[in-house]
């Protein structure tokens, strides 16, 4: 009921997140000459692609008031499966990529199936999935396994106009998700399902289909993240993907997405991803103990949620 402060109220968190990114860049460039170089910045953006791809999928799920805790485990399994299938042979690339993506999509659809048809909570389903997928991975191997083909590996370091092509790829994924959410009927229905499930059902929105959509895309993007890791590591390393789901959820939430669903923007989530990635990078550049990184992220998370609260209760109060 206060239209004047509308824009600020709604977007204050996004502004805060981007200002923090700016502060980090400023601090970084003061403390280290290497920080504000094209090389380091594009490097950070490339790193952001890993967390970002997964986080965009997680965001879709959270927008429907769901959660996917399994993406870290799925990334791990995807790295292993794609590495084994590719086995260093360039002829296998298409097949390996295809099957890995199919695996991802399949896992996501299965999540949605359990949530839709058996009426289980997303938390329970994907929590179980976290352990099942991890169990499968660790049964396959506990040591690095398989091999990327050389061409596939080279994609990681390839650049176009000084910028790694992975960054362009991530830009494309971001635009696709933004397009999906803002311009399509599916996107509007995602917000509606998370905003008010009863209303969505009463309005004839195919809620189950929407769930198949978001969980499918979320897991698909996790599989894509797995493939990006294979590009980077060259082997299927079972260490990959650890706690990724937690970082993704943090990025989504500090980007202003409501854990209750129905509210959130791609711009915000990208801000959250950049903030986390720059924090990590800055700590490395400053030579700070890596364990501090978790502490810092935790503090940022709490601060973000605390900042988010006023506008949240503002919404509830006038709802």
């Amino acid at each position: 009921m206060t239209p004047k402060s509308n824009f600020l109220q709604k977007h204050s968190l996004i502004l805060v997140v981007y200002s923090l990114v700016f502060v980090l860049i400023t601090v970084g460039s003061i403390y280290s000459e290497r920080f504000l170089t094209l090389r380091n910045l594009t490097n950070v953006l490339r790193q952001a692609a890993y967390l970002g791809t997964a986080a965009l999928g997680e965001m879709l799920v959270i927008l429907t008031a769901g959660i996917d805790l399994s993406i870290g485990s799925l990334v791990k399994l995807s790295v292993l499966v794609s590495a084994i299938l590719m086995d260093g042979n360039p002829d296998n690339v298409m097949m390996a990529v295809g099957l890995t993506l199919a695996l991802g999509l399949g896992v996501g659809l299965l999540h949605a199936f359990f949530i839709n048809e058996l009426n289980l909570s997303p938390f329970v389903v994907t929590f179980a999935s976290l352990f099942i997928l991890q169990g499968i991975s660790l049964t396959i191997t506990t040591k690095p396994i398989g091999r990327s083909s050389k061409d596939f590996l080279l994609l990681y370091s390839q650049k176009f106009l000084e910028v790694p092509i992975i960054v362009y790829f991530f830009g494309l994924v971001t635009l696709l998700v933004a397009f999906l959410l803002n311009m399509t009927v599916f996107g509007k229905h995602v917000y509606a399902v998370g905003g008010n499930l009863t209303v969505a059902e009463l309005s004839g929105i195919p809620v189950k289909k929407i769930r198949y959509g978001v969980y499918g895309i979320c897991s698909l993007l996790a599989a894509v993240t797995g493939l990006l890791w294979l590009m980077r590591m060259g082997v299927g390393d079972p260490v990959i993907g650890k706690e990724l789901e937690l970082n993704a959820i943090i990025a989504v939430v500090i980007g202003g997405t409501s854990l209750f669903g129905g509210r959130g923007t791609v711009t915000g989530v990208i801000g959250g991803v950049l903030l986390l990635t720059f924090t990590d990078n800055l700590l490395v550049v400053l030579g700070v103990n890596q364990f501090v990184s978790g502490l810092v992220k935790g503090l940022i998370f709490v601060a973000a949620v605390a900042l988010y609260k006023p506008s949240e209760s503002f919404q509830r109060a006038t709802a």
């Binding site: 399509t184 009927v185 509007k188 917000y191 509606a192 209303v199 509210r263 919404q315």
Partner: peptide
């Protein structure tokens, strides 16, 4: 009221019956 409070007035009015340009695009 059967409204989604997080969505805009226009989105609510046409919820479930969005006017489409082509398949799936609003």
């Amino acid at each position: 009221l059967a409204l989604v409070s997080e969505m805009s007035v226009v989105e609510n009015i046409f919820l479930g019956r969005e006017i489409r340009r082509t398949v799936g695009i609003i």
